[in-house]
């Protein structure tokens, strides 16, 4: 199998008004390629063309110019869709179907089908086993997001496109989604992630593409983009104040006077919150 999962060249989409006059150029000459096993973040401010790009990749829109191949086929090709999973920005589910019925319905849309144990496995994976028989209309927004994610994975896709996957989720849900994305990448799946939550993109993505006004204005591996050349950080166990002063003096003797400082690191609120929840559930108190 080729390692190139998505190839878009010169991708352009212009929206027209009622009279056929060009109104908005949502995507302008975008080049994009996704390799197998990559988790790529598609970033940009509102109106940058992220959703339009995703819809073009999924065949929901046709490009005004340029070409797209998804898994070696045009995006509207049914065979390509057999291997693609998509979580849209909104729920878009049928409120009268239960969670289990929703997944069973989507499983039937695939020619190669899904093994019978796939539905309960996915419900377990997204933490909805206990609510499988409740109508989706009774779910909270976070639960609808979870069942939406499960439907995107029903066919064990090679390419997963997630549009704001953690929108409406609590920190536990966000952690679960990030774990699922990491597991997908570990299994060689390709993930395209659209999100405004940069911290989450930073946590899970290998690479990002930043769109502004429909054009890719920056992109690359996160390690390279976020590195601060000319700076170094020393990480060590907590020390008392005299020891800290001695350490700073020693470092200044080596690297010279400059921006050298020592501080007590703070954990993130999310990390603290998760620990509190875990303790509460195991019967312990606050740390």
């Amino acid at each position: 199998m080729s390692d190139l999962v998505v190839r878009a060249e010169g991708l352009t989409r212009v929206f027209h008004d009622f009279w056929g006059r060009p109104r908005v150029t949502a995507v302008a000459g975008l080049n994009l390629s996704l390799q197998r096993g990559e988790v790529v973040g598609l970033l940009g401010p509102n109106g940058a063309g992220k959703s339009t790009t995703v819809k073009l990749l999924l065949g929901l829109l046709r490009p005004t110019a340029g070409s797209i191949e998804v898994l070696g086929r045009p995006p509207r090709d049914v065979a390509a869709k057999e291997r693609v999973g998509y979580l849209p920005e909104e729920s878009y589910l049928w409120p009268f179907l239960t969670g289990a019925e929703t997944l069973a319905f989507f499983a039937r849309l695939f020619d190669r089908g899904a093994p019978p144990e796939r539905v309960p496995y996915l419900l377990e994976t997204v933490g909805l086993s206990g609510a499988a028989d409740r109508p989706v209309g009774e779910y909270s927004k976070g639960m609808q997001r979870r069942v939406g994610l499960a439907q995107a994975l029903i066919n064990d896709p090679d390419l997963v496109i997630l549009d704001e996957p953690t929108s409406g989720l609590d920190p536990l849900g966000r952690r679960d989604v990030k774990a699922i994305i990491a597991e997908l990448a570990a299994r060689g799946k390709t993930v395209l992630l659209c999100s405004h939550l940069l911290a989450e993109v930073e946590d899970v993505c290998h690479r990002v593409v930043i769109l502004v006004d429909g054009r890719a204005v920056a992109g690359g591996a996160l390690g390279e983009l976020l590195a601060e050349p000319g700076r170094a950080r020393l990480d060590l166990p907590a020390v008392d104040e005299p020891t800290a002063v001695r350490l700073l003096n020693t470092v200044r003797e080596v690297v010279g006077e400059g921006d050298v400082h020592l501080e007590t690191p703070q954990r993130s609120l999310q990390s603290y919150f998760l620990e509190v929840i875990a303790r509460a559930r195991s019967g312990g108190g606050a740390p």
Partner: peptide, 14 residues
């Protein structure tokens, strides 16, 4: 209207 088409049109059904 309800956006279901986003889910249906991205599944392998012609």
């Amino acid at each position: 209207r309800d956006g279901h088409v986003h889910l249906l049109a991205t599944k392998p059904i012609s």
